[in-house]
Design a protein around this nucleic acid. Structure first.
Lengths: 368, 368
DNA sequence: TTGTATGCGTTATCAT
DNA sequence: ATGATAACGCATACAA
């Protein structure tokens, strides 16, 4: 076992100093071509990789990136993490996963992570009430990116989707199908994405010249059970009062709707069309399979991490610059404004996935 | 920002030396009571936490544990990870997640992880063909634990379930229900768990005095599509040749069976009972919901990590012992054998979850 | 271009 | 019991 191979050993083996090996390792151009090759040969031959720990200590730049995530059994989270993992695989960073349960004080968890100084940046996935805390840390200079659907936009770098437009498109799809009485099951009011999706829905109706009927807007909580309650309430009405389509603000609630419909013997999409939002794993397997807006979770994870890595590298460089040339204010300013310009809000396109839970309204299909 | 707070600062603030602060930090008993309290006060006041990086460098014991996992979108993996996360939260370790895609050479990934010397132990989840490599590393002295259902037992510490007994119980349940013609859809032959489950099935039949009918044993590959193919083949037979129950070796294949049954208009459980294995997330939501053997994935993750942490701590201590008292062979020997005694194969109990895909055989229900 | 010396934050080995 | 001081493995400013 060559377990204890250090840069010193390589130096000895190559007949040079540690410094030279270090330079070769870090692609420092000031190394003679032949010497460089010789050192690299020794490095390859012995499969030498510098200790990440030691490197971190020496240059104050750990190659570790923290990922703060809700329980991995939550919907969508594994898909996001997969994107994160895929991206990180092609970098020289490693991922430190902080999957937080519901019990502990999230604020303390965050403080600990930061005080341990073990990660040089953090991706926060669905951080919930931690947002303000995160924003504060970011403004203090800590590299931070978030994937969130709850908080209103802040100065924090953010990756997500355009909920308004996506909901608009879903509603537009229903209108194009011929539906005119389109109901909406909203998410909770304290979710910004719920507001946006509602507004996209309302917007599409308005553009179609249809007056939004408040009796067709239901309030849910994003969990299946609230979908069930909405469905029970809706289906207990006079059938003549039913909408012909229901746009549900997320798939989880749509599952509840489908569930109740099946129990009540209500045919979907024949009697009512159902469209969801998210395209979670299960949505292709429900009966009927769910037409829904696909959120590109994996891409979101990848994009978020790419953004974060860029930030960390910048942070690292400007840090050194600031140390060496404290007079170069101009340069720093321009870089800072450049960072401002690089829109910290990245929106990734969604698209509609048409499955079997949606169809033309009954009135029309009968007419054919 | 008190970002750059070091042990040196604490020492100055408390009017002592770094060494003393370090001793307090590590609960070294040789510190005067009053002094200890004073130092501790300063530490608390400033929320000081020693740098994990520096500690790692100094004592060669990084507080990082690696977790090598297949893509998180695989079934069961998020549940295992949740258990891992829950356990690690209550330790002083952090988790470095290596989620490997399908493309790269796993062997190289492993070598890199080990050569980086960034983690002091590794949990390998479903490592596939990496097993022999892992076993080698473990025998070289690297703390390693695995959660696997594919390889035959090795000397590697392992956490899992008793597949034979579990399959026996599932089959026994069907027998108790009154079924006598019970089919089995196996997993692939190169999965050890598939063999074990088949044997448990066969064992239960034998104990019930039933002769195993080879025409009722199907070969699958653990994916939904192979469940579909089995179902198509089975349902195309003369109905009089059908079994009254089908024990499927995992839930994924059972989904395929359910799918085909629905398309063919075959009633489950009225026309045929289906029982799965795993209790994946979807299994409670299928139509009909799936009766299955529940694998305690979360507990498995927790247990595996607990085992690993114990190993790492031992490894660390005995390492120091060996260094300081190389003559104490007796002690080491006994510890070594103790490690051998501590069965490296931990089996966590499963249990049957009865849902709606199973019932009494038709012949009996008609007779009532 | 290359080597030497110092520092990173902590633990551990010496003295005292 | 406590305080200097030398590792730990690497990067880097400085000297050559």
């Amino acid at each position: 076992m060559h377990n204890k191979l250090t840069i010193q050993d390589i130096a000895r083996l190559a007949g040079v100093s540690k410094a030279t090996v270090s330079r070769v390792l870090n692609h420092n151009p000031s190394v003679n071509g032949l010497l460089r090759e010789r050192v690299q040969r020794v490095i390859k031959e012995h499969n030498f990789i510098p200790s990440v720990i030691a490197v971190g200590l020496a240059d104050g730049h750990t190659r570790l990136i923290g990922v703060l995530a809700p329980p991995l059994t939550w919907p969508s989270v594994p898909e996001i993490m997969q994107g994160v993992a895929e991206y990180i695989e092609q970098t020289h960073y490693e991922m430190v996963l902080y999957s937080i349960g519901l019990e502990r004080n999230h604020s303390d968890v965050l403080d600990n992570i930061l005080r341990l100084k073990i990660v040089s940046g953090l991706l926060a996935i669905f951080p919930g009430e931690l947002m303000s805390h995160l924003t504060y840390r970011f403004e203090q200079g800590f590299p931070l990116v978030t994937i969130d659907d709850q908080a209103e936009p802040t100065s924090l770098p953010w990756v997500g989707v355009d909920n308004h437009t996506s909901a608009y498109q879903a509603t537009r799809y229903l209108l194009d199908l011929g539906h005119t009485r389109i109901a909406h099951l909203m998410g909770p009011q304290h979710y910004y994405c719920a507001i946006e999706r509602y507004q996209g829905y309302a917007h599409a109706l308005r553009d179609a010249g249809i007056i939004l009927d408040p009796a067709l807007v239901f309030q849910g909580t994003f969990v299946p059970d609230s979908g069930r309650q909405c469905a029970i309430q809706l289906f207990s009405r006079e059938k003549s009062d039913w909408p012909t389509a229901l746009f549900v603000a997320n798939d989880q609630m749509a599952y509840g709707v489908l569930d109740v419909a099946e129990q009540l013997g209500i045919q979907i999409p024949e009697e009512i069309t159902v469209v969801g939002f998210d395209d979670n794993n299960f949505s292709a397997l429900t009966r009927p399979s769910l037409t829904t807006i696909r959120q590109p979770f994996s891409q979101m994870g990848r994009q978020a991490l790419e953004t974060l890595v860029t930030m960390i590298d910048q942070h690292h460089h400007t840090g050194k610059e600031a140390l060496n040339h404290p007079e170069a204010e101009e340069t720093q300013k321009s870089m800072h404004s450049e960072q401002e310009d690089t829109s910290p809000r990245i929106q990734i396109p969604t698209h509609l996935v048409v499955r079997t839970s949606s169809g033309v309204p009954r009135t029309l299909s009968i007419g054919l």
